[in-house]
């Protein structure tokens, strides 16, 4: 279980930091250049969010699959000393 907790907290930490950085910068850009076309800014913003969502999703999916197997091993699996 410690493995899962560690990976979760790591994943959450980096996504939080990454998105907060993005948000701070995105807000700054928008206020400074409000009269310009904002579409490129949004696209950069969305691109970076997509990157971190996909990577985070991968980590979460692995964690979930690992959790399922570990539960299976503890519950119904044969006592194999693991």
């Amino acid at each position: 279980m410690r493995k899962k907790g560690l990976s979760f907290s790591l994943a959450i930490a980096f996504v939080l930091v990454a998105t907060s950085l993005l948000m701070a910068q995105g807000a700054g850009d928008i206020s400074q250049l409000a009269r310009q076309n904002l579409r490129p800014y949004w696209h950069v913003f969305i691109a970076y969010i997509l990157v971190w969502l996909i990577l985070f999703g991968w980590v979460v999916s692995i964690a979930r699959r690992l959790g399922r197997i570990e539960r299976g091993l503890q519950g119904s699996g044969p006592p194999s000393g693991r």
């Binding site: 990577l55 991968w58 692995i62 699959r65 197997i69 091993l73 693991r82």
Partner: peptide, 18 residues
């Protein structure tokens, strides 16, 4: 993450053989 995924695959195989 690949190492993490590798550990999952390893556990999966070990469980199925167990």
């Amino acid at each position: 993450i690949m190492t993490y995924r590798y550990a999952l695959e390893r556990l999966t195989v070990e469980r199925s053989t167990a």
